[in-house]
């Protein structure tokens, strides 16, 4: 495998047993992602987008093939090593935000830093920086139940970026948001990509998200059918030029 890639998959296959039959969620997917990418897996439901993100995020393992993330072979990692990889290098953004309901905004964002064992003063500084990024510093003491959907997703973004990961995996991040909130959070993520160099990989079928992507990979029935990159900057909706 090449070492300059953040993610590299070779013949990645994921099979789910379905009674007597087998369901191929991914079939021999060969993809690579470099640092600073703003890419999306696009396709209909059941095309394997989430499965791909789960495997790359070390939440699942491939049935066949090889997956290398940040130099680590996912299929060989123990539970502990996989958790360590997620803790240090990978951020997740979910469709349903997945905030911890009993925590305040501040505590939710602080959570990954507690796992990393950072001292209290550094945690506070980094949490406030992350909340500034998503323009929620004034809601630090609110609980998720007191926030709108857009605000919740911004908290989730802050939680994902606060540990300054190399990679953020976002699974349908705009599916529960209205158009205005969707654009807000996409602009935030595009800015984080540009200014901090964080790699974003989306799983989406939302046209609004697609409009921001630098690279669009189309999956159909677990296979890559198209892999397009665009010369224009993210956020320049409608100005994509495939190369």
């Amino acid at each position: 495998m090449e070492n300059n890639q953040l993610i590299l998959t070779q013949k990645l296959t994921k099979i789910y047993p379905m009674g007597q039959h087998q369901l191929y969620a991914l079939k021999e997917v060969d993809l690579s992602f470099g640092p600073g990418e703003f890419a999306g897996l696009v396709g209909p439901s059941g095309s394997g987008k989430t499965t791909f993100l789960n495997i790359v995020g070390s939440l699942d393992v491939p049935s066949q093939g090889q997956v290398e993330v940040l130099g680590r072979r996912i299929e060989t990692l123990t539970h502990k090593e996989a958790a360590e990889l997620r803790k240090k290098h990978i951020g997740f953004i979910f469709q349903t935000f997945n905030l911890l309901p009993v925590y305040t905004v501040f505590e939710n964002v602080e959570f990954p830093l507690i796992l990393l064992g950072l001292p209290s003063s550094e945690r506070r500084q980094r949490v406030m920086e992350a909340l500034e990024w998503v323009r929620l510093a004034d809601r630090a003491n609110s609980r998720p139940a007191q926030l709108s959907g857009g605000e919740c997703q911004r908290v989730a973004i802050a939680r994902a970026i606060v540990k300054k990961p190399a990679l953020i995996l976002a699974d349908e991040p705009t599916a529960n948001l209205d158009a205005e909130n969707s654009h807000n959070i996409l602009q935030i993520m595009a800015r984080l990509n540009q200014e901090l160099g964080i790699t974003f990989i989306f799983a989406t079928h939302d046209e609004k998200v697609i409009g921001y992507l630098k690279r669009k990979i189309t999956l159909v029935d677990g296979r890559v059918t198209k892999d397009e990159t665009y010369s224009s900057q993210p956020g320049m909706e409608g100005h994509h030029e495939a190369s």
């Binding site: 539970h79 958790a83 803790k87 997740f92």
Partner: peptide
């Protein structure tokens, strides 16, 4: 779901 989130955030089982 929270348990899943905790694992995604880097906690072992």
């Amino acid at each position: 779901k929270e348990i899943g989130t905790l694992m995604a955030l880097g906690m072992t089982r």
